[in-house]
Design a protein around this nucleic acid. Structure first.
Lengths: 198, 198
DNA sequence: TCCATTGTAGGATAACACCTTACGTTATTT
DNA sequence: AAATAACGTAAGGTGTTATCCTACAATGGA
C-alpha cells in the first residue's frame, strides 16, 4: 500500500524483531514502521533495544492493542506514534507524515483510552457497601486517611484544629470499628480501600 | 446564564472557598460548578476538603489554566470535569449534563494538553538519575518499604531477623539520604515511588 | 424518653522513635 | 597496597508518642 505514495520509499522489510534491529542499524531509515506482533521478541523490548543502541529514527508503532498500560509502556520505550491496525489506510499515511515531521501521533481511540485511564485512576470513589468502612463517621474517615499517611496525632490535630487527644480518640474508635490492632494493618486497610493519595 | 435552562436550578452561590464548602454541605447539590479562582483558598485544597468530608457530589471545575500538571492535580483531587473559561457557553452546559450523568468531561484543548504531556513524559527515556533513591542500599530499601506500611521497628526487626536497633539505624540512614525528617514525608515518598503493595 | 453515636478532651504509662556512637566487613579509589 | 567510603550490624539515652481508660455534652433514632 505504501508504495503507491510517491513520497514514500520502502528501503527495508523485516519479518521479526532481530532482523528489524539489524536493518534499522544498517539502513538508517527516515522512519521505522513497527508492527508489534513479532514472533521472536517482545515489541517493547525491541523499541528499547533500538533506543539503547542510540538509534534515533522516528518509530511509528502499529498494533491491535488498545490498552492504556500497554500504550504508555510502548510510548515510554521511545515510540513516536501509535496507530491501531483497524485504522484506515489514510490515517496510517497521515500518521507517517506527522511522525516523520517530528510530531507525535496517536489514533483517536487510543487517545481516548489514555484519557479515560488517566481519569479513572484519578477519582474512583466507589466503595464496597458491606465494608466496616461504612461504620466510620466523617471525622473518623478523615483521621484514618491522615494516620495511614504516617502523620502523628499531633500533626493531624494541628491540621484539623483539634486536640491531639481528640485525634487519639478517633484513632481508637477507628481501630475498634475496623477490628484492627496495629498501625500496619491500618495502613494496609487504607491501601486496600484506596484512601491514599496516589 | 444557567438560569435560562429549565432543567437547571441554581440552589446556592458562594464567593469564596469556605463559603462553598459550607454551602455544599448544607444544600447537597446534584452538582457543584466550581470556579477555581478563589480569594481565600487553593482550589485543589478546596476539592480535597470536600472529598475529605465524604461529600460525593459531582464537581465540574471551571478555570483558565490549561496546564497538564494542574489539570491532573485537580482531577486527582476528585473533580469530575474540567472546563476552560474561554469555552463556549454551550460547552459548559454540555459538560454539566455529562458530569451530572456520571461521566467525566474535559475541554477538547485540555484533553490535548494532557495527551501532549503524557507523550512528552513518555518519550523521555531518562530515568531519574538524580533521585536519592539510588543512594539507598538494598537493606535500606527493604526497611523503607516496611516503614511506609506502618510497621514499627520491632515488627520489622522480627520479620527481617534483626535487632530493632539495627532497623532503627537503617531508618536513620534512609531519612538522612532522602533528606526527610518526618514519617509522613517518608510515606509520601514511598507512595510517589510506588513502593507500596497495591 | 432513653440509649447509641458522635465530637470533644484529659491522665497515666508503657512503647516507641529519634539521635548518636561503634565496629567489623566489603568495595572503591588512590 | 593502603586509604577511604559504604554497608550491615547493634546499643544507650531521652524525649515524644501511642495506647488504653475515663468523661461529658449534643444529636438522633427507637
Amino acid at each position: 500500500m505504501l508504495t503507491f505514495y510517491p513520497d514514500f520509499t520502502v528501503i527495508g522489510e523485516a519479518d521479526n524483531g532481530l532482523q528489524a534491529l539489524q536493518l534499522v542499524e544498517e539502513c538508517e531509515p527516515d522512519l521505522l514502521l513497527l508492527d508489534l506482533s513479532m514472533p521472536d521478541m517482545n515489541g517493547v523490548d525491541c523499541i528499547n533495544e533500538i533506543r539503547a543502541r542510540g538509534l534515533t529514527c522516528p518509530i511509528l508503532v502499529l498494533t491491535m492493542y488498545d490498552e492504556a498500560e500497554y500504550i504508555k509502556e510502548v510510548m515510554r520505550a521511545g515510540a513516536n506514534g501509535y496507530v491501531l491496525k483497524k485504522s484506515a489506510d489514510t490515517e496510517l499515511v497521515e500518521a507517517i507524515r506527522k511522525v516523520h515531521s517530528g510530531q507525535k501521533h496517536l489514533s483517536e481511540t487510543v487517545a481516548h483510552t489514555l484519557i479515560d485511564n488517566l481519569l479513572h485512576k484519578a477519582s474512583d470513589t466507589s466503595l464496597p457497601e458491606n465494608d466496616p468502612y461504612q461504620l466510620l463517621s466523617v471525622r473518623e474517615r478523615e483521621v484514618l486517611r491522615y494516620l495511614a499517611q504516617g502523620y502523628t496525632n499531633s500533626e493531624i490535630a494541628r491540621q484539623m484544629s483539634l486536640s491531639p487527644k481528640t485525634v487519639d480518640t478517633y484513632r481508637s474508635r477507628i481501630m475498634g470499628k475496623l477490628a484492627i490492632h496495629k498501625k500496619s494493618e491500618l495502613v494496609n486497610y487504607a491501601i486496600q480501600h484506596k484512601l491514599l493519595p496516589l
